[in-house]
């Protein structure tokens, strides 16, 4: 059996990829996908830990995280559409009215 720490390390790598993507990509769709990747890394830790402990709480949490991620994606895509209608692009560089 693969030791549970391997899953944690993989999850950390996925999470960091997602984090850097969310912080440094300029395209809003890519940012949304990166956030989903972060949440999936979280799910991996929960499932792996729940499996190794022998406890279902982790899997229940995963279901909630999936639901919340879907809600977040819905609201996020709605915002992307709203931005696209106003500006004609989904690049974050155009969002520069608020600063200082």
């Amino acid at each position: 059996m693969v030791p549970v720490e391997f899953y944690f390390v993989l999850a950390c790598v996925m999470f960091l990829i997602g984090l850097f993507g969310a912080l440094f990509r300029r395209n809003l769709i890519m940012v949304l996908m990166s956030i989903e990747l972060m949440l999936n890394a979280v799910n991996l830790v929960f499932v792996a830990a729940g499996r190794s402990i022998g406890n279902v709480d982790g899997q229940i949490m995963v279901l909630f995280v999936i639901v919340v991620a879907a809600c977040e994606a819905a609201v996020g895509l709605a915002m992307v559409i709203a931005v696209f209608r106003k500006y004609g692009t989904v690049n974050t560089d155009i969002l520069r009215l608020l600063r200082g």
Partner: peptide
């Protein structure tokens, strides 16, 4: 809209980080 998008991106990242912390606490 600009405020909402910025808040959304950073707020979601924050939620993911918080959740990652919860995952390790659980593990």
């Amino acid at each position: 809209q600009e405020g909402a998008v910025k808040y959304f991106i950073l707020g979601s990242i924050a939620a993911a980080i918080l959740l990652f912390g919860f995952a390790f606490l659980y593990a």
